[in-house]
Nucleic acid binder design. Structure first.
Lengths: 136, 136
DNA sequence: CAACTCGCTAGACGGTGTCCAGATCGCGAC
DNA sequence: GTCGCGATCTGGACACCGTCTAGCGAGTTG
């Protein structure tokens, strides 16, 4: 993992202790955490951090292009540090979200859609992860 | 969608006055309303309906296959009476959601994904609607 | 009529996300 | 060092979304 401090500075963010603590966790996680989960994970290492700071920090990271905010689950927004284009699979049983590499699925004819200026798109899949239990 | 009463009955739902009032609006709308918007729309015609009833009714409709619940916007779940497969375009300025016909866009190789049992999928696009001189 | 079922109502409740006033921190100037 | 100031953090209040529950009323059955 790269030094969180320099990553923040490269994006024009003052690297305070709280921001670095949030970055250390959220920039390398794969678990697509909600804001409150981020709070809990960070509190384990920095117990004095407040909820409002975590929310503010996450919004700042999204604004500065360090994170994506995803509205896939019904209950809450989750965060994804993978900024390269990719798709998402949502496990309907557990709610777990998995990244699907961009080149595993192709989307065709999307350029020919009239009347829409498309800035971004992705395929959202829902179903059940196979082998999630029996295979380690 | 003229006779809401028969539609409800065909899906095994007792057609109470409140349920018919909700159905009359939500089964023919294109505006992808949130639950609270449904409440306001229906209240305009049936002022005595309660919020809990609208929420219960919407969930019942989803359960019985009359509606889809979509988690596309960041703030709340919205409902869509179009049950045929289709894609969605989200206007980043207004938050408006537009349906995109299934055959306008093709998704390839999705069947060959290993490790996932895919029950459903769609393409979610974000951008700006062209030629829409909005500001409702 | 009583007892039962079903749907509706109003309000309480828990969770998520934002906002605000005040405290604190970091840092340059003196 | 310490003064001052803007940036940051804190804890709590707040608003909103969605669910739950107790109670009420209408219809049905015996």
């Amino acid at each position: 993992m790269r030094n969180s401090v320099s990553v923040l500075q490269e994006h024009g963010i003052q690297p305070s202790a709280q921001r670095v603590a949030v970055a250390d966790y959220v920039l390398q996680t794969l678990e697509h955490p909600s804001a409150d989960l981020v709070w809990n994970r960070v509190k384990a290492r920095v117990p004095y951090i407040s909820r409002a700071t975590v929310y503010n920090t996450l919004n700042l990271f999204v604004e500065k292009g360090l994170l994506q905010a995803l509205a896939l689950a019904e209950d809450s927004v989750v965060f994804d540090p993978k900024m390269a284009r990719h798709h998402h699979f949502v496990d309907e049983e557990s709610g777990t979200i998995h990244d699907v590499p961009w080149d595993k699925v192709q989307v065709c004819n999307i350029e020919s859609l009239k009347g829409f200026e498309i800035h971004d798109y992705q395929v959202v899949m829902r179903g059940i992860r196979k082998g999630a239990r029996r295979k380690a």
